[in-house]
């Protein structure tokens, strides 16, 4: 299945060369979990704090549906 992945802030350095503004699509096996996806993207788990699936924060063990929009953030704050 195909996922639309968006990396933000310090994680953008992990994006593949073809990515634009940290955004890229990735073919992954059906039913992959977020934790597995992080591994496929070579993202160290401890450098990720928020993963959103279609705008909703999801736990690392959650399976992902086809065509999902995945947003991945490092530790951050501000305001």
């Amino acid at each position: 299945m195909k996922l639309n992945i968006n990396l933000f802030a310090t994680l953008r350095k992990f994006a593949p060369p073809a990515a634009r503004n940290g955004e890229f699509t990735l073919e992954v096996p059906k039913g992959v979990t977020i934790r597995e996806l992080l591994r496929l993207c070579h993202l160290p788990e401890q450098s990720v704090t928020v993963v959103m699936v279609n705008g909703m924060v999801a736990p690392l063990g959650a399976p992902i549906e086809d065509e999902a929009q995945i947003s991945i953030f490092p530790p951050l704050a501000g305001g």
Binding site: F8, A9, T10, P75, L76, G78, G79
Partner: peptide
């Protein structure tokens, strides 16, 4: 995060 991107990181 704050040194590299400032508050706009949000």
């Amino acid at each position: 995060a704050l040194p590299e991107f400032g508050t706009a990181v949000l």
